[in-house]
Protein backbone atom coordinates (compact mmCIF):
# COMPACT_ATOMS: atom_id res chain seq x y z
CA UNK A 1 0.00 0.00 0.00
CA UNK A 2 2.99 2.32 0.46
CA UNK A 3 3.50 2.23 -3.32
CA UNK A 4 -0.07 3.44 -3.84
CA UNK A 5 0.34 6.17 -1.22
CA UNK A 6 3.63 7.35 -2.74
CA UNK A 7 2.19 7.44 -6.27
CA UNK A 8 -1.29 8.65 -5.36
CA UNK A 9 -0.97 11.78 -7.55
CA UNK A 10 -0.84 9.58 -10.65
CA UNK A 11 -4.28 8.24 -9.76
CA UNK A 12 -5.62 11.68 -8.97
CA UNK A 13 -4.54 12.87 -12.41
CA UNK A 14 -6.81 10.17 -13.82
CA UNK A 15 -9.68 11.20 -11.56
CA UNK A 16 -9.41 7.98 -9.58
CA UNK A 17 -9.99 7.53 -5.86
CA UNK A 18 -8.56 4.75 -3.68
CA UNK A 19 -10.10 2.65 -0.95
CA UNK A 20 -7.83 0.14 0.76
CA UNK A 21 -9.34 -2.67 2.81
CA UNK A 22 -7.90 -5.05 5.37
CA UNK A 23 -9.15 -6.80 8.49
CA UNK A 24 -7.21 -4.39 10.70
CA UNK A 25 -9.06 -1.84 12.82
CA UNK A 26 -9.13 1.90 12.12
CA UNK A 27 -6.81 2.28 15.08
CA UNK A 28 -4.19 -0.04 13.63
CA UNK A 29 -4.55 1.76 10.28
CA UNK A 30 -3.67 4.98 12.09
CA UNK A 31 -0.64 3.43 13.76
CA UNK A 32 0.53 1.90 10.48
CA UNK A 33 0.24 5.28 8.78
CA UNK A 34 1.95 7.13 11.59
CA UNK A 35 4.77 4.70 12.26
CA UNK A 36 5.59 3.11 8.94
CA UNK A 37 3.65 4.02 5.78
CA UNK A 38 4.16 7.77 6.13
CA UNK A 39 7.89 7.15 6.43
CA UNK A 40 7.92 4.94 3.34
CA UNK A 41 5.70 7.19 1.20
CA UNK A 42 7.14 10.46 2.46
CA UNK A 43 3.65 11.65 3.42
CA UNK A 44 0.51 10.58 5.24
CA UNK A 45 -1.66 8.03 3.48
CA UNK A 46 -3.92 10.17 1.27
CA UNK A 47 -6.70 7.62 0.73
CA UNK A 48 -9.44 5.89 2.70
CA UNK A 49 -8.16 2.95 4.75
CA UNK A 50 -11.23 0.82 5.41
CA UNK A 51 -11.53 -1.75 8.17
CA UNK A 52 -13.18 -5.10 7.46
CA UNK A 53 -12.58 -7.06 10.65
CA UNK A 54 -15.31 -9.68 10.09
CA UNK A 55 -14.31 -10.12 6.42
CA UNK A 56 -17.82 -9.22 5.23
CA UNK A 57 -16.62 -6.99 2.42
CA UNK A 58 -13.81 -9.33 1.42
CA UNK A 59 -16.29 -12.21 1.22
CA UNK A 60 -18.58 -10.52 -1.31
CA UNK A 61 -15.51 -9.62 -3.36
CA UNK A 62 -14.25 -13.20 -3.20
CA UNK A 63 -10.95 -12.28 -1.59
CA UNK A 64 -11.44 -13.27 2.05
CA UNK A 65 -9.32 -16.23 3.12
CA UNK A 66 -11.53 -18.00 5.66
CA UNK A 67 -8.71 -20.16 6.99
CA UNK A 68 -6.18 -17.41 7.52
CA UNK A 69 -8.78 -14.79 8.47
CA UNK A 70 -7.16 -12.22 6.21
CA UNK A 71 -7.80 -10.65 2.84
CA UNK A 72 -5.93 -11.68 -0.29
CA UNK A 73 -4.38 -9.01 -2.51
CA UNK A 74 -7.46 -8.24 -4.57
CA UNK A 75 -7.41 -5.15 -6.74
CA UNK A 76 -10.56 -3.94 -8.48
CA UNK A 77 -10.93 -1.12 -10.98
CA UNK A 78 -14.45 0.31 -10.79
CA UNK A 79 -15.65 2.76 -13.43
CA UNK A 80 -17.78 5.90 -12.86
CA UNK A 81 -20.95 3.84 -13.43
CA UNK A 82 -19.97 1.49 -10.61
CA UNK A 83 -19.07 -1.37 -12.94
CA UNK A 84 -16.07 -3.52 -12.10
CA UNK A 85 -13.88 -3.37 -15.20
CA UNK A 86 -10.86 -5.27 -13.91
CA UNK A 87 -9.76 -7.41 -11.05
CA UNK A 88 -6.50 -9.02 -10.05
CA UNK A 89 -6.04 -11.26 -7.05
CA UNK A 90 -2.64 -12.31 -5.70
CA UNK A 91 -1.79 -14.49 -2.74
CA UNK A 92 -0.01 -12.62 0.06
CA UNK A 93 3.72 -13.14 -0.68
CA UNK A 94 3.88 -11.18 -3.96
CA UNK A 95 3.07 -7.49 -4.32
CA UNK A 96 1.22 -5.71 -7.11
CA UNK A 97 2.63 -3.55 -9.90
CA UNK A 98 1.17 -0.09 -9.38
CA UNK A 99 1.95 1.06 -12.92
CA UNK A 100 -0.11 -1.79 -14.33
CA UNK A 101 -3.18 -0.37 -12.58
CA UNK A 102 -2.43 3.04 -14.08
CA UNK A 103 -2.05 1.46 -17.53
CA UNK A 104 -5.35 -0.38 -17.21
CA UNK A 105 -7.27 2.67 -15.99
CA UNK A 106 -5.89 4.72 -18.91
CA UNK A 107 -6.90 1.99 -21.36
CA UNK A 108 -10.42 1.71 -19.91
CA UNK A 109 -10.74 5.49 -19.99
CA UNK A 110 -9.74 5.45 -23.67
CA UNK A 111 -12.33 2.78 -24.47
CA UNK A 112 -14.97 4.69 -22.50
CA UNK A 113 -14.13 7.99 -24.23
CA UNK A 114 -14.59 6.33 -27.61
CA UNK A 115 -17.71 4.45 -26.53
CA UNK A 116 -16.09 1.12 -27.39
CA UNK A 117 -15.34 2.05 -31.03
CA UNK A 118 -11.63 1.75 -30.25
CA UNK A 119 -10.17 -1.06 -28.16
CA UNK A 120 -6.76 -1.51 -26.61
CA UNK A 121 -4.65 -4.51 -27.58
CA UNK A 122 -2.09 -6.27 -25.36
CA UNK A 123 0.34 -3.96 -23.62
CA UNK A 124 -1.47 -0.85 -24.83
CA UNK A 125 -0.38 2.49 -23.50
CA UNK A 126 -1.45 5.98 -24.62
CA UNK A 127 0.08 6.71 -28.02
CA UNK A 128 0.19 3.09 -29.05
CA UNK A 129 -2.00 1.53 -31.73
CA UNK A 130 -5.66 0.94 -30.96
CA UNK A 131 -7.92 -1.40 -32.87
CA UNK A 132 -11.28 -0.50 -34.37
CA UNK A 133 -13.49 -3.58 -34.18
CA UNK A 134 -15.70 -4.26 -37.19
CA UNK A 135 -16.26 -6.66 -40.08
CA UNK A 136 -13.15 -5.41 -41.92
CA UNK A 137 -10.88 -6.25 -39.02
CA UNK A 138 -11.93 -9.88 -38.76
CA UNK A 139 -8.96 -12.04 -39.72
CA UNK A 140 -6.93 -8.93 -40.46
CA UNK A 141 -5.57 -7.95 -37.07
CA UNK A 142 -2.19 -9.34 -38.18
CA UNK A 143 -2.02 -6.64 -40.88
CA UNK A 144 -2.46 -3.74 -38.51
CA UNK A 145 -1.03 -4.88 -35.19
CA UNK A 146 2.10 -6.86 -34.38
CA UNK A 147 2.84 -8.48 -31.01
CA UNK A 148 6.53 -7.96 -31.79
CA UNK A 149 6.51 -4.33 -32.96
CA UNK A 150 3.45 -2.86 -31.29
CA UNK A 151 3.36 -4.71 -28.00
Amino acid sequence: MSAVAANYEKLQELGAEVISVSVDSQFVHKMWNDNELSKMAGKDVPFHMASDGPGNVGRIYGVYDENAGVELRGRFIIDPDGIIQAMEVLTPPVGRQFNETIRQIKAYQHVRAHKGAEVCPAGWEPGKKVLKPGPDLVGNVWKVWSPLKDH
Binding site: E17, S22, F76, I78
Partner: peptide
Protein backbone atom coordinates in the same frame (compact mmCIF):
# COMPACT_ATOMS: atom_id res chain seq x y z
CA UNK B 1 -17.12 5.78 7.43
CA UNK B 2 -16.38 5.08 3.78
CA UNK B 3 -19.14 3.99 1.40
CA UNK B 4 -18.29 2.77 -2.08
CA UNK B 5 -21.39 4.23 -3.73
CA UNK B 6 -20.38 7.72 -2.58
CA UNK B 7 -17.76 7.53 -5.33
CA UNK B 8 -20.15 6.92 -8.22
CA UNK B 9 -19.05 9.22 -11.04
CA UNK B 10 -15.37 8.63 -10.26
CA UNK B 11 -12.96 5.82 -11.02
CA UNK B 12 -12.15 3.76 -7.96
CA UNK B 13 -9.20 1.52 -7.23
CA UNK B 14 -10.36 -0.86 -4.51
CA UNK B 15 -7.42 -2.66 -2.91
CA UNK B 16 -7.57 -5.50 -0.43
CA UNK B 17 -4.39 -6.59 1.33
CA UNK B 18 -3.50 -9.16 4.02
CA UNK B 19 -2.73 -6.79 6.82
CA UNK B 20 -1.14 -3.66 8.24
CA UNK B 21 2.51 -4.09 9.20
CA UNK B 22 2.96 -7.10 6.97
CA UNK B 23 6.07 -7.10 4.86
CA UNK B 24 5.02 -6.93 1.21
Amino acid sequence: TVKLSDFLGKWVMLCFYPGDFTFV
